[in-house]
Design a protein around this nucleic acid. Structure first.
Length: 821
RNA sequence: GCGAGAGUGGCGGAAUUGGCAGACGCGCUGGAUUUAGGAUCCAGUACCGCAAGGUGUGGGGGUUCGAGUCCCCCCUCUCGCACCA
């Protein structure tokens, strides 16, 4: 036979058989323990890339492993099929987005099958199909009913490249998450989901997500950005109230000015003012023109203009000037601040620049005087020059001063969040139509549930600019469900993150035509046991999906508070020091690898070559090593198959070498299992390789290898390899004479007794350095160990003529002899 | 700046609880086999040293019989957040 196994024939054979047998179809079975293995669904860009292969190989090895352990496994996949690339491709290549997307899906599905991923294809979903997106619309209507979906005119993030609005979460470093282009601020009327209603719960519940990476939880905490402070109402000289938010009300006696965001509504009414109006208008316009990247750059110079107005500090009645400045943001707090240059670095810089007084009101707690002439003193301390509050500590003062404001009616305790409502309107075509009808009489009227789905019409000749649906007269023109009069449909489509916020629920009941899913099926499969994907969705998808779950719970649809038990974020695949990308020309196409080395070798390598949560540096020669390993495994099986088949039976009396191999086997089985459970596939694979090496060592050195033992070795090895390399494992399993698929077999049992070493090697140290070793039986006493150690010849030469001060013996491990002199 | 994580051979990386540092793989060296190449197999491979031995987990200090692992200080890198009042 050839010294290489025929992976092409084997992989094709088993892929076909798996499909014929519907082997991965999941069926709810009450009473049977379930395992829901979920991976982030891909965008159907046209071809699977190495990042997908890594993500899905990890998920697949877990799914297959759990199946061997007897779990009822749900392992589904689908397509995040709406989105801009399809639409852009359509504009560029004059092909309908639907055709483009569906063609990509079928290509990528074929690639998934080629990789041997064990998906239940009966549950496949594609978010661009009406039987999926109608439920997006349905959820939207439910939220509309509850007041959780609403329309508002406000400032939004506009990506010029994408020609659409973006949610706050989708603005990364001031740029678009998709293409990095700078985001502009525009005024737009659009639809929002009231995620901020859930800010507190989303934050609090993070503590309970113990099986989520700390990193993701921290990112979400930062994103929600809860800060507790005080709202204080200043009054302008004409009596107009001006509310500010501060977390440091204890410093308010040091407020020497007040600053508004240039977008603040009071500013608009002041631009008519003949003296200061022109400068105000010009400055506001200037700030507006600067894109978000520059605006939010901390290094950017703090600029401002005096408004010509004054406000009264309600605590001390002091009259302070009102400014507008670029560093105050309209969308945080009240869009207005009291500025305390002595105790806030930003205010300090601003005051220094414009010659505003700096007044110290907090003294360091250590009793020193402190100095606020060179920089602000921002720590907590003791109040001074603060009226009745002087002498109090900052924390106590905050509480008392807030209470004071409440009693006097000019302020209250207040909590601000960085998290804003989720803007979901998109001015593009390839997405879920928002099921709303605008009627001149009745206003925004929801489409009746019975009329769902509102289907996306086909549009010929898509182009950029404007909302494409607006051009489709037959779509826009409709009648009002309320009054029957002529009305217009909403032409914005939904953010595609809506699609991915609940897709994993749909998997539990993917073909349900009467509801998004049946709650009982959710009860059975949920929560997701492990969710694997990239960390880049930490504050987008992963926060939206949590929000949706809480809304669905409040709608009585599910009983869960959180959808995902354990989250695992896999690392990036890089090559030559940077992320694989077309522009860098360092892309390795999975297809070509599969063609040359087979899917099993690729799956093995991508899981072996780096810890799953770290970066994976692609090295071709590493892959070849894995391919070599599979051939080595194959040759071993090939060589001993006749012997094993001939002597079908139990393990005979073993030689020491045989015992050693058997012991190694029974140590490897639990090692591989716990490694997969911990998502340490790299060390699981290493242990399997190590075991094969031991098996070769045995047959090389043993004159008559025990056929029973070899049988056990090959069977167990094959089962352990199955989660990683299912095709070759199936093939070997069949050759071993098993009629059924290996997937129906059970993870090998291991025997603690057989795994136990009967001789231990004890290391002897002298002053902490290894000087000798001896073997001792299991359970050797401390005293015996010390005695044996001191008797050791090599050790003797090290302690000769010295005084033994102390002997430390660690049972079964080592003896350390401390000497001096 | 703040927060999190990391720093181990030529390389990717191992090392449940403090107890033999470098598993496994790549690469490299030598050998066997082969007409040759490839493939395969065997041996070796942290560093210095002929050896005995010594030195080694970013640097410095500490705790301990014993530290990659724990504590303190510093350096470097990666990621996230970043005018949030």
């Amino acid at each position: 036979m050839s010294d290489k196994y025929d992976f092409r024939a084997i992989e094709e054979k088993w892929q076909k058989r798996w499909e014929d047998q519907q082997q991965f179809a999941a069926i709810e079975e009450a009473g049977k323990k379930k395992f829901y293995m979920l991976e982030m669904l891909p965008y159907p860009s046209g071809a699977l890339h190495m990042g997908h292969v890594r993500n899905y190989s990890l998920g697949d090895s877990i799914a297959r492993f759990r199946k061997l352990q007897g779990y009822n496994v749900l392992h589904p996949i689908g397509w995040d099929a709406f989105g801009l690339p399809a639409e852009n491709a359509a504009i560029k290549n004059k092909i309908a987005p639907e055709e483009w997307t569906l063609a990509n899906i079928s290509q990528m599905k074929a690639q998934c099958i080629q990789m041997g991923f064990a998906y239940d294809w009966n549950r496949e979903i594609a978010s661009c199909l009406p039987d999926y997106y109608r439920w997006n619309q349905w959820f939207f209507l439910k939220m509309f009913e509850k007041g959780l979906a609403y329309k508002k005119k406000g400032q939004v993030n506009w990506c010029n490249q994408c020609q659409t609005v973006l949610a706050n979460e989708q603005v990364v470093n001031g740029g678009c998450w998709r293409d990095d282009s700078p985001v502009e601020v525009k005024e737009f009327e659009q639809w929002y989901l009231r995620i901020s209603d859930y800010a507190d719960e989303l934050l609090e519940a993070l503590d309970g997500l113990e099986a989520w990476p700390e990193k993701v939880r921290t990112m979400q905490r930062n994103w929600i950005g809860k800060s507790i402070g005080t709202r204080v109402e200043f009054k302008l000289e004409d009596g107009t109230p001006l509310e500010i938010f501060t977390t440091r009300v204890d410093t308010i006696y040091g407020a020497t000015f007040v600053v508004l965001a240039p977008e603040h509504e009071l500013v608009r009414s002041w631009t008519d003012d003949p003296e200061h109006g022109p400068q105000l208008a010009e400055f506001a316009e200037q700030v507006r023109r600067v894109d978000k990247i520059q605006r939010t750059d901390e290094a950017a110079e703090k600029l401002g203009v005096f408004t010509g107005r004054y406000a009264i500090n309600p605590y001390n009645g002091e009259r302070v000037p009102v400014w507008i400045a670029n560093f105050v943001l309209m969308d945080y707090g009240t869009g207005a601040i009291m500025a305390v240059p002595a105790h806030d670095q930003r205010d300090f810089e601003f005051a220094s620049k414009y010659g505003i007084p700096i007044r110290q009101v907090i003294l360091p707690a250590d009793g020193t005087e402190g100095d606020v002439q060179d920089a602000a003193f921002t720590e907590y301390g003791v109040l001074a020059n603060s009226g009745a509050f002087s002498g109090l500590g900052s924390a106590e003062a905050q509480a008392k001063m807030t209470t004071h404001a409440e009693e006097q009616g000019f302020g209250s305790k207040s909590i601000s969040y960085r998290l804003k409502d989720w803007g979901i309107s998109r001015q593009r075509y390839w997405g879920t139509p928002i099921p709303i009808i605008h009627c001149p009489e009745c206003g925004s009227v929801p489409v009746p549930e019975a009329d769902l789905p509102v289907k996306l019409p086909r549009v010929e000749g898509l182009s950029l600019g404007g909302s494409p649906l607006e051009q489709v007269e037959s779509f826009v023109k409709t009648t009002c469900p309320g009054c029957g009069g002529t009305a217009r449909r909403e032409t914005d489509t939904m953010d595609t993150f809506i699609d991915s916020s609940w897709y994993f629920y749909r998997y539990a009941d993917a073909r349900n035509e009467g509801a998004p899913f049946d709650g009982e099926k959710i009860d059975y499969w949920f929560p997701v046991d492990i969710y694997i994907g990239g960390v880049e969705h930490a504050v987008m998808h992963l926060i939206y999906m949590r929000f949706f779950t809480k809304v669905m719970r409040d709608l009585g649809l599910v009983k869960l508070d959180e959808p995902v038990h354990s989250l695992f974020t896999q690392g990036m695949v890089i090559k030559d020091g940077s992320k694989m990308s077309k522009s860098k020309g360092n892309v390795v196409a999975p297809d070509l690898i599969v063609e040359r080395y087979g899917a099993d070798a690729l799956r093995l390598f991508i899981q072996f070559c780096a810890p799953p949560d770290g970066e994976l540096d692609w090295i071709d020669s590493g892959l070849e090593g894995c391919y070599r390993f599979l051939n080595r495994y194959w040759r071993f099986v090939d060589r001993y198959l006749p012997l094993i088949s001939e002597h079908a039976g139990t393990v005979g009396d073993l030689t020491d070498r045989g015992r050693a191999l058997q012991r190694k086997l029974h140590q490897t089985i639990p090692k591989v299992a716990t490694d997969i459970e911990r998502v340490h596939q790299n060390t699981a694979v290493a242990a399997i390789m190590e075991f094969l090496n031991a098996a070769y060592d045995y047959v090389d050195k043993e004159e008559q290898p025990d056929p029973g033992l070899l049988g056990e070795v090959v069977r167990s090895l094959t089962l352990m390899l199955y989660p990683f390399c299912p095709h070759v494992s199936e093939e070997v399993w069949e050759r071993l004479g098993n009629g059924d698929s290996i997937a129906l077999a059970r993870w090998p049992e291991f025997d603690v007794e057989l795994a136990r070493e009967d001789e231990l090697e004890i290391v002897v140290q002298v002053n902490g350095k290894v000087r000798g070793r001896f073997s001792a039986p299991v359970g050797v006493s401390r005293e015996a160990m010390e005695k044996l150690a001191l008797e050791d010849e090599k050790v003797q030469s090290w302690i000769e003529g010295k005084t033994v001060r102390k002997v430390i013996a660690v049972p079964g491990k080592l003896v350390n002899i401390v000497v001096s002199g």
